[in-house]
Each structure stands twice: as C-alpha cells, then as structure tokens.
C-alpha cells in the first residue's frame, strides 16, 4: 500500500512546490517508486519546477472527468527512472476536483507507486483540503517568519480535524516540520526566528532545515529539482530530510553561522 505524503503550509510562497519536487526526486533517487501530484488546479507550477512543462498533455482534471486515462496523464521523469508527475490543470477552476475522483486516482496510483506526494496549493480551501484529506503523513513547510509560522499552526489544526484519518478516528496523520529559507547568519544577528523557537512553537518533529540558497532560484530557472544540484547546501539538506523521512538518523547541517575569519568579515559574501 502506498504512503500518501502531503506537502502543505497554509501560506503561499514558502517553498511547497520546490520542496515537493526536491523531496519526490530524492525519494526516487533512493529507489522508491514515487509519483508527485500537483493539486493547484488553475495555478499549476510543479511541471515548471520539474522541467516537464512541455510534456504536459493531459492533467488530473482530465483523468477525474474521464477524458483521459491515468497513464496518459502521468509524465515519467527522464532523469530519475522511478519518478512520475501528475500535473494540475491550468485552465479549469478548483471545483473540477472532488473527493471521489481524487480517491480513485490515489487508489489506482497505489498499485504502482510506493509514495504518492501531494503538492498542496496555498490556503485552506477546497484544493488544500483535498490535498491533505488522504494524507498518511504531512510535511509542513515553514519559513522562519511570523505569518508563515502562524499559518503552519493553522494548517496543522486542519490536518488534525479534516483529514480522512481524523474523520475515521484512525492513527493521526504523521506530521513533519520542514523549515525552509533558513539563514543562520541573520539568526545569529537576532534578525530571524531561531530554529528552536519555530520548533517549540509548532511542536512538530523536525524533518529538515533548508538553508537560504541561491541554488533554489537557479534550479527553478532551469526546471531541475534543486536536489539534483548535489553540490549545493540546499540539495544536501533536502537529501538529509529524505534520509530522515526513511528513518535514518542524520544530524542537522547548515543551521549554524560559520565563524568568519578576518577576510570573511571584510569581504562578506554568502554561501551558495
């Protein structure tokens, strides 16, 4: 039985799609069969971040409405063999998705894949609710910033009350916190919330910390999940998060500001 993992946040622009792309690719690199679904109907973006926008023919709405078979809509990744993408529709509105349709798709995908990653839209309306409804696990993406933390708290409440697991009184959805755009230098200056503070406020186990990195924008420019740019700190931090998700013990990296020598102080510069 496949595990359904929803990547969500409440707030927009914190790195859900970047994280969905990186995390799915990372799991697939570890030999797992992974499909990542874009739930942002009307504002699809996962295809762009994954660099498959020119291969989209059918989408999730076509499948739900019986206009295409699931296999016709799935895009098989060319870089990582065991990875597939199910794009969202660009032209329909959110009402085109419904619980029964999504349930059918997830059931069918469960036959082939080990992990079904749901890339949630922002907000707490229909699209976001559907993205989290079938979740076994949730990865809550949070920036160290007040509005993002509050929205994460809100979405955690929604996961606990509105998911299928909650409705059926089964074991609760497993929650994971993924802090993104973390800048240890600003934290050291007292300008940014500390990791420990974010974690203690949200009280959810920490899956990973992705440092602020220029590599993320470069990767999205190119349509390459950032985890494939293996030299970068962001890629390594995502790879660590994948390992932790699979139960491995990995110390957190890139969370402390490096002590700069005299030259570093004089000439500044930022980590990639």
């Amino acid at each position: 039985m496949a595990q359904v993992v929803t990547v969500t946040s409440g707030k927009g622009g914190v790195g859900k799609t970047t994280s969905s792309a990186a995390f799915s690719t990372g799991l697939a690199q570890r030999g797992k069969k992974v499909v990542v679904i874009d739930f942002d109907v009307g504002l699809r973006n996962l295809d762009l971040i994954m660099g498959v926008e020119r291969r989209v023919v059918f989408d999730i709405v076509n499948v739900i409405q019986g206009e295409a078979r699931l296999n016709q809509a799935l895009i098989r990744d060319k870089r990582v063999e065991t990875l597939a993408i199910l794009p969202a529709s660009q032209t329909r509105d959110k009402d085109a998705l419904n619980k029964e349709g999504v349930a059918k798709i997830i059931e069918e995908l469960s036959k082939e894949f080990d992990y079904i990653i749901c890339d949630s839209p922002a907000g707490i309306e229909k699209g976001a609710l559907l993205a989290l409804y079938f979740a076994d696990s949730a990865i809550v993406v949070t920036n160290p910033e007040v509005s993002s933390v509050r929205d994460s708290d809100r979405i955690l409440g929604v996961i606990q009350s509105k998911s299928k697991r909650a409705e059926e009184n089964r074991d609760p959805v497993r929650e994971h916190l993924l802090v993104t755009r973390y800048d240890p230098i600003r934290v050291a200056k007292g300008e940014m919330l500390k990791l420990e503070d974010v974690q203690s406020i949200l009280a959810v186990p920490l899956l990973g910390v992705i440092p602020e990195s220029e590599a993320v924008l470069k990767a999205s420019n190119a349509g390459t999940p950032v985890i494939l740019d293996a030299e970068t700190t962001a890629a390594q931090a995502y790879a660590d998060a994948v390992s932790r998700f699979l139960g491995e013990d990995k110390p957190m990296r890139f969370v402390d500001a490096e002590k700069k020598g005299i030259f570093g102080r004089l000439f500044g510069g930022r980590a990639a």
Binding site: V146, R150, S161
Partner: peptide, 15 residues
C-alpha cells in the same frame, strides 16, 4: 507567536 499560537485554541480544535 508564542502568544497567538502556543497558548491558543488555534490548533487543538482545528477551527
């Protein structure tokens, strides 16, 4: 944040 989140019914009741 501690004020609005950690002490609040924001989470526990979902809505």
């Amino acid at each position: 944040l501690t004020m609005i989140v950690a002490t609040g019914g924001n989470r526990r009741n979902g809505d």
